[in-house]
């Protein structure tokens, strides 16, 4: 029942997004604008500050992710559908997992556009070590989304949710962004530092395990008013 409910919630979010394209379009537009602004500011005569591309990629992921989190849960607030989801006869953590998978998928789509764009504008060979790079993106995205989904769900009934989400989210996800940036920078060095990248991936994977477990454990009491 747990898996079934989580997948149903994911499928429902995808179906709504396919119809409205609301979150995908705003997230992508914001992410691309963010990268373009940094490219105009930091690229001079074809040369760029060392490690800038890594930082810009992760900043764009974090900012557009925050936007996507807010919009996705706004949908559940509009007609109080979150209450109807919480009435499903399954562990309420299944709702969390379904929403988390939706956010990860959405950020994955954003990254599909962001990575080639940053690579092009900053002349950065992200895929010199493709497996390690994908590992960094995946673990970093899951970590950011795990914390973000929990906070966005908690704040769905709060009037100050738009202000509170970044205030709560960024301090806790700073390790994810730092690990993502350092791991990506290690892969982009003249001689790619694979052990360093692996270390950052392991750190991100640990963060994911800790925060997904914590969210699964706390979601039900936090969502019961």
């Amino acid at each position: 029942m747990f898996r079934r409910v989580a997948l149903l919630v994911l499928r429902k979010d995808v179906a709504i997004e396919v119809k409205s394209l609301e979150v995908v379009s705003t997230t992508l537009f914001f992410a691309v604008s963010c990268v373009l602004v940094f490219a105009f500011a930091l690229v001079r005569d074809g040369s760029v500050v060392v490690d800038a591309a890594a930082g810009i990629l992760w900043i764009a992921i974090a900012f557009s992710g925050t936007l996507a989190l807010g919009r996705t849960f706004e949908r559940e607030r509009y007609a109080e559908t979150l209450r109807a989801l919480l009435l499903a006869p399954a562990p309420r953590a299944a709702i969390y997992v379904g929403k988390l998978l939706g956010i990860v998928l959405l950020l994955g789509v954003a990254e599909l556009m962001l990575v080639p764009l940053v690579s092009l504008l900053f002349s950065t060979p992200f895929f010199a070590r493709p497996l390690l790079f994908v590992g960094l993106l995946l673990t970093g995205t899951v970590g950011f989304a795990a914390v973000g989904t929990l906070f966005a769900a908690m704040l769905v009934r709060s009037r100050t949710r738009d202000i509170m989400l970044p205030i709560l989210l960024y301090p806790i996800t700073v390790p994810v962004i730092i690990a993502g940036v350092r791991g990506t920078a290690a892969l982009l060095a003249e001689t790619p530092d694979e052990p360093a990248a692996l270390m950052w991936i392991a750190l991100l994977a640990s963060f994911d395990v800790v925060f997904v477990t914590l969210a699964l454990w706390t979601f039900e009491p936090l969502m019961t008013e």
């Binding site: 709504i16 509009y78 007609a79």
Partner: peptide, 21 residues
């Protein structure tokens, strides 16, 4: 446990439906 919710139905002023679908 969660099985109890099989036996509960709620209709509120808010419709609990997705307008896009």
């Amino acid at each position: 446990g969660p099985e109890l919710r099989h036996h509960i139905g709620l209709l509120a002023h808010e419709l609990h439906l997705y307008p896009e679908l």
